[in-house]
């Protein structure tokens, strides 16, 4: 029995990675859910918007690095982030003007808008591949660890180390700040309130004199910011590969639906539900259990419920369960 070591292993391999991944998914799902709440369609281009924003940020990071600008222990990408957000926001606003606005004026069916977002996804995917290529790009710099496994061991004298990568810490802190700002904006500011009113009841909001074009524009800007931040954090934590961002669509949609499409707080909850389930189901629990049970009962197998190759199956399974048992999600989203 060695509860402390078991706890450290759990924190190191399950809790901290899950927390960072959950924060990334939550930011992605927030973007999806906002678009859904205001514009009323599932945006299939969101994964590629993330990729686009990350790509722009990476380009700025490289430029800063070449000029010798750095951010101390923090990754340079954080300095480049505002520029990435600005360009991505310009891009989403442009897309809305050129593509989506036409269908909004026509009051096209949601499924048509979904299909249009497929076209946008194609274009953005093409642009990203054209500019930065399809390969892995690693752009994390600055300090590697907040606490490294070795330091932790000497500090506490435990057999197991707890490593906190600086990218994980940056992810969680940034995500908390962004979520706080977003909720402050939605709850306290006039524009935020008009967005919520528009999402709740479009006709009533229009009658009360809310300018729909402005609401839509602000939504796109926020969605672009959320997508870029989520993408950059994910890229810092793992690495940037355009196709992986496309595949993130599934867990992000699952998170948004689990929380309830259209509900921001639900998107955050959904992000963490999906991330922790994914990490816990694909983690091999052998080490933790070995510490917890008497030596004679130590397990022989890996105690892994599913191989990591099937991590998408986890988000999919949760998605299916939610669709069967509560189609409006945990926080009662829309089911138009």
């Amino acid at each position: 029995m060695d509860i402390l070591n078991a706890l450290v292993v759990f924190l190191n391999f399950v809790f901290i990675p899950g927390l960072a991944y959950g924060a990334q998914l939550a930011l992605g799902a927030l973007g999806v859910t906002l678009i859904y709440g205001i514009l009323r369609f599932s945006n299939f281009a969101h994964g590629d918007t993330m990729a686009f924003g990350t790509m722009v940020t990476i380009l700025f990071t490289w430029w800063f690095q070449s000029m010798g600008i750095s951010f101390g222990v923090l990754p340079t990408a954080l300095l480049a982030l505002p520029f990435g957000i600005a360009i991505t926001a310009a891009m989403t606003l442009g897309t809305d003007r050129v593509v989506y606005r036409f269908y909004r004026k026509q009051k096209a069916a949601p499924v048509i808008l979904v299909m249009v977002s497929l076209g946008v996804m194609f274009v953005m995917n093409g642009i990203v591949r054209l500019i930065i290529g399809v390969d892995d790009q690693n752009f994390a710099d600055g300090g590697r660890f907040l606490i490294s496994a070795g330091d932790f061991k000497t500090m506490t004298g435990l057999a197991e180390g707890l490593a906190i990568k600086s990218t994980q810490a940056v992810t969680v802190v940034t995500a908390l700040v962004v979520m706080g700002l977003l909720f402050w904006f939605l709850q306290k500011t006039r524009t935020g309130k008009s967005m919520r009113a528009f999402s709740d009841n479009e006709d009533l909001a229009l009658l009360s004199g809310i300018n729909p074009d402005r609401v839509v524009q602000v939504t796109w800007i926020i969605a672009a910011a959320l997508a870029t931040i989520a993408g950059v954090l994910y890229g810092l934590d793992k690495s940037f590969k355009p196709f992986v961002y496309f595949q993130l669509l599934l867990p992000i949609f699952a998170a948004a639906i689990v929380g309830g499409l259209g509900s921001p707080i639900g998107a955050i909850a959904g992000g963490f539900v999906i991330a922790f389930s994914e990490v816990m189901v694909t983690y091999a629990w052998k080490k933790v259990v070995t510490y917890l049970v008497p030596e004679s009962m130590a397990p022989e197998g890996l105690l892994q419920l599913m191989s990591t190759d099937y991590k998408f199956a986890v988000s999919f399974a949760i998605l299916i369960l939610v669709l069967i048992f509560m189609p409006t999600g945990l926080f009662k989203g829309k089911s138009v």
Partner: peptide, 16 residues
């Protein structure tokens, strides 16, 4: 269910 759910579910089953 609503129309986009089929799109998202089929996207997932194909990956799996």
């Amino acid at each position: 269910l609503r129309s986009d759910y089929l799109a998202i579910a089929t996207l997932g089953i194909a990956e799996i």
